[in-house]
C-alpha cells in the first residue's frame, strides 16, 4: 500500500459523464471553498456508519479456522516499508490510558500478560480485497475495559500508535468477545512489523481498524476519527 499523505484531494472526485461534479483544487477543510463532492461523500460515509452499527451484532462471531489454514509466511502491511516499523522497547513500554476511564494507571507488558489471555485463529480482511488467516492471542478488550473501570456507555475507544497511526472503534465492537488487545502472533510475542508490543485485533472489522504498536488508549464521546478515515476510508469499517 502506498502512502497517500501527498494527496491533495482527500476523497477522489469522479467525473460522472461530464456532470458538474468536478471542482478544481478545492480543500475540504477550507470554509470558503467547500468541496461539494467531498462533503457529499463524507455525509454518505457517516450514513453508512450508522447502517453498519445497526447491522452489527455483539453475539455474531467472525469465523475461526484450524491451525492448518494459517497463512505462512504472514503478510506485512503498513503505510511504510517493513524495515521502518517502529522499534518499541518492551521493558519501558507502557499503555497510557486517557478519557472516560476510572483507573488511568498505565499498564506494563508484564501486567497485561498476567491477565487471562485468549487466542483466536481468524481471518484478517484488508480493505484492498485480500485476506490472510493468522493466530492472535491477548487480553479481551471488553474484559480490560471493565477492569480499568472505563465508561462502557461511552461511544468510542481510541488508539494511538508508536508510528503515528491512530484509530478508533465504536463501543459495541470494542465489547465484542473476539476483540482483543493482542500480545502474541502465531504463538510468539508480536514482532515489530506485526505491531509489537501490543496491537488491536478485531476480526469483525477491516484490517485498517486493527492498529499496531499501541501506546495509548482512550475512551471518549468525541469522534476520534482515524489515520485512513481522515483521508476518506469509511470509519465503521465493519466486516
Amino acid at each position: 500500500m502506498t502512502s497517500s499523505l501527498d494527496r491533495r484531494a482527500i476523497l477522489g472526485r469522479g467525473l460522472i459523464l461530464g456532470a458538474a461534479t468536478m471542482l478544481s483544487g478545492c480543500n475540504y477543510d477550507h470554509l470558503n471553498h467547500p468541496d461539494l463532492a467531498d462533503r457529499f461523500l463524507t455525509g454518505m460515509s457517516r450514513w453508512n456508519d450508522r447502517v453498519q452499527a445497526n447491522l452489527f451484532s455483539q453475539t455474531r462471531l467472525a469465523p475461526t479456522y484450524p491451525a492448518s489454514a494459517i497463512t505462512r509466511p504472514p503478510r506485512f502491511n503498513a503505510f511504510y516499508d517493513i524495515d521502518q516499523a517502529p522499534q518499541v522497547d518492551p521493558a519501558t513500554w507502557r499503555l497510557e490510558l486517557t478519557g472516560r476511564i476510572g483507573d488511568k494507571r498505565p499498564w506494563t507488558l508484564g501486567q497485561l500478560r498476567a491477565l487471562p489471555q485468549e487466542s483466536q485463529i481468524t481471518r484478517f480482511i484488508c480493505v484492498e480485497g485480500w485476506r490472510v488467516i493468522g493466530e492472535w492471542g491477548g487480553v479481551p478488550l471488553g474484559q480490560f475495559l471493565r477492569r480499568i473501570n472505563a465508561d462502557i456507555k461511552a461511544r468510542y475507544v481510541s488508539f494511538q500508535c508508536a508510528d503515528g497511526y491512530y484509530e478508533s472503534i465504536d463501543m459495541p465492537s470494542a465489547l465484542h468477545p473476539q476483540t482483543i488487545l493482542a500480545l502474541d502472533f502465531l504463538g510468539a510475542p508480536l514482532t515489530a512489523p506485526f505491531g509489537a508490543p501490543m496491537r488491536l485485533r478485531i476480526p469483525t472489522k477491516l484490517g485498517y481498524k486493527n492498529p499496531k504498536s499501541i501506546v495509548a488508549m482512550g475512551v471518549t464521546n468525541v469522534f476520534p476519527s482515524g489515520y485512513w478515515v481522515r483521508q476518506g476510508y469509511n470509519w465503521f469499517g465493519g466486516s
Binding site: 497517500s4 494527496r7 484531494a9 482527500i10 476523497l11 477522489g12 472526485r13 469522479g14 467525473l15 460522472i16 457529499f40 461523500l41 463524507t42 454518505m44 460515509s45 450514513w47 453508512n48 480493505v127 484492498e128 485512513w228 483521508q231 476518506g232 476510508y233 469509511n234
Partner: peptide, 19 residues
C-alpha cells in the same frame, strides 16, 4: 476509466451510489 482517483475515494463513491 475509473472513478475515485484512489481506493478510498472509489469506495466512498461506490457506497454512495449503491443507495
Amino acid at each position: 476509466a475509473v472513478i475515485g482517483e484512489w481506493l478510498g475515494g472509489a469506495i466512498a463513491w461506490h457506497f454512495a451510489a449503491i443507495w
